[in-house]
Simulated assay, not measured.
Amino acid sequence: MGPDLPINNSDIPNLSPDDALERDSLVFRSYIALGSYQLVISEIDSNAPTPLQAVKFLALYLSDPTQKDLTITNLREWLGDAALANNPILRLVAGIVFMHEQDYNEALKYTHAGGTMELHALNVQIFLKMHRSDYAEKQLKVMQQIDEDHTLTQLANAWLNLAVGGSKIQEANLIFQDFSEKYQMTGLLLNGKAVCCIHMGQFDEAETLLLEALNKASFRSVGRLNDAKDAETLANLVVCSLHLRKSASRYLSQLKLYNPEHVLVKRLSSAEESFDRAIQTRV
């Protein structure tokens, strides 16, 4: 399945204009998830409604690292327009972009008010990245009050359980297992199950799941492992390989090549620099 494979978005009869817009937004975001950034950029013109323009900002941001600053500047201009700033898709994209930038306070400026399940779920992610599982739990409770069985509520619950650890790991594993039985297996689910296995010391099983995730990514975007999920697969394979006393150099090299800004790469570079300084001091 290559990145240009058409997504099944067969016409649904009697959609209201708002529902049709939501459908189009989801379809274009699906193409972004497949790495088809240029398709999204070319098909959404300057006259498109705000939600689609927001999706285009996300595609622009992810497609070209050299244009990130310009994209963020343009995104801020839209967010500064009172008539546009409350659009939930625009706020969601702002949250995603600033989370990528690791500017979590800025991300929360646009997402904290919630309003949609996606915004609440993104808040959970942001709080977990800030190591504030207490705030993430509060967001999860809001989601549970709205719809306890919603897919995003269950995913957010699994993420929080992974962050808390201990006995919660088994609960997270059951959620990912339930999803894997209900839906087609994805890289996100495979990584979720693998991380549970790593926490439980089941490294051989984790490696099998992660290699399956990596194969799916390679099959999807032939030679272009460049989205966040693929990066996490490589990072998890590095950790898993080290626990299995196997060489992790190939996965680490791929991670450095495709995702040089990944936290694992940065931490390793920092450790290597500290080691080199210590050696020079001794010499």
Rank of each mutant, 00 (worst) to 15 (best):
L75S: 12
R76F: 03
R76S: 11
E77F: 08
E77P: 02
E77W: 07
W78M: 12
L79V: 02
L79E: 11
L79K: 08
D81K: 12
D81M: 03
D81Y: 03
A82F: 10
A82Q: 13
A83E: 15
A85G: 01
N86L: 05
P88Y: 09
I89F: 05
I89K: 10
I89A: 07
L90C: 12
L92K: 03
L92I: 11
L92E: 13
L92R: 11
V93L: 05
V93G: 03
A94C: 09
A94D: 10
A94V: 07
G95W: 12
V97R: 01
F98M: 01
F98Q: 00
F98S: 01
H100N: 10
H100W: 06
Q102N: 08
Q102H: 11
Q102M: 07
D103R: 04
D103F: 03
Y104V: 06
Y104A: 08
N105S: 12
N105E: 13
N105Q: 07
N105I: 02
E106L: 04
E106G: 00
E106Y: 01
A107V: 03
L108A: 13
L108N: 10
K109P: 00
Y110L: 02
Y110H: 14
T111K: 06
T111R: 05
H112T: 04
A113T: 09
G114C: 06
G115C: 02
G115D: 12
T116K: 02
T116A: 02
M117E: 07
M117Q: 13
E118M: 07
E118V: 11
L119M: 11
A121H: 13
L122K: 07
L122I: 13
N123S: 11
V124N: 06
Q125C: 12
F127H: 14
F127C: 01
F127T: 07
L128C: 09
L128T: 14
K129C: 03
M130T: 10
H131Y: 08
R132E: 10
R132D: 15
S133A: 14
S133P: 01
S133E: 15
D134E: 09
D134R: 02
D134I: 09
D134L: 06
D134A: 06
A136H: 06
A136Y: 04
E137L: 10
E137F: 12
E137M: 07
E137T: 06
Q139G: 00
Q139D: 08
Q139I: 00
Q139M: 04
L140D: 01
L140W: 14
K141R: 12
K141I: 03
K141T: 01
K141L: 13
V142I: 10
V142F: 02
V142S: 02
M143G: 04
M143F: 12
M143L: 08
Q144E: 15
Q144D: 08
D147R: 00
D147Y: 06
E148R: 01
E148G: 00
E148I: 15
E148K: 05
D149Q: 00
D149W: 00
H150D: 15
H150F: 06
T151I: 15
L152G: 08
L152K: 01
L152I: 10
Q154I: 10
Q154N: 00
Q154V: 03
L155K: 02
L155S: 11
L155I: 14
A156Q: 04
A156D: 06
N157H: 05
W159N: 13
W159F: 14
L160C: 08
L160H: 04
L160Y: 08
N161D: 09
L162K: 00
L162A: 01
